[in-house]
Amino acid sequence: MTRDRIPYAVFTLIVAAAGWYTDNPYYLQTLTFIGINTLLALGLNMLMGYAGQISLGHAAFYGIGAYGTAILTVHWHVSPWLALPGAVAAAMLVACIVGIPTLKLSGYYLGMGTLGFGMIVNILFREWSSVTGGASGFVGIPSLELGPISFSSTKNYFYLVWGFVIFSFILCHRIINSRVGRALRAIHDGEKAAAAVGVDTAKLKLQVFILSAAFSALAGFLYAHMVFFISPESFDFIASIRIVTMVVIGGMASVWGSLIGASLLTLLPEWLHAFSEFEMVVYGLILMIIMIFLPKGLTRGLLDMFERARKNK
């Protein structure tokens, strides 16, 4: 058990050191975005990598988290710390209602079902303008305060987000290495076989779906209180596809894969600014090349290469 914890302890140290060492708010903000994206990727990875269920509509839960806290704090004047469980609970409730019929679908049809759900939620964000501010967006989301600590400072916010990330990593790690985790992998490898050995597949799939919605909503909450502004296009179909891409590029069924995928997809556009007009072409090419040469994602692929290189020596 203790050996299991070493990577997480090291990782926590690295995060703390990065926060201590970095002073430029731009780099801190970039790292914070990576943290938020990691939460998104982690949530979807639980669903895709471990339970083998696709979702092309996860940005909807991300949006529900963000709009949930925005509505609660701005319209209803609720404290953000109460809005957090509120927004997450709302996303979980929606996930439960949508999940029950949708998760009966499989493969591309599940993809289509979740995609349709994501589109409908996005249209709601845009059209229900009296509540959500419509296409122009939602302004005036308050910053987070906890007693004397103000999270409007970039550095404090960095620690807050990465605190949540580390907590989620450990939570996921425990779930994966529990009975539930084994049952999930059984579903991934063969749903009927899993059912035959006594796994309640429908219930378990729903639970993971709800869990991954909760992670996405948490990310949405953190995004809203970081930028203080949200608008529908941050939570559209393209955003959903980006989350899926993070998971697959990083490596499915790997907690660290989520981190790597999220980092790459956050940093890549920043680096590619130098290409200006060619940015899109290069970005698309890099995605394709990674997938062509490392079909198992960056984490697994790089490890494999490392091992092969060692054997060949």
Partner: peptide
């Protein structure tokens, strides 16, 4: 000059870069 692609998150990153970097 940076490109926002019309995306709020990218704009926030870009402005942060302009101000801080």
């Amino acid at each position: 000059i940076y490109d926002t692609e019309g995306d709020p998150s990218k704009t926030v990153m870009g402005v942060s870069k302009l101000i801080n970097k």
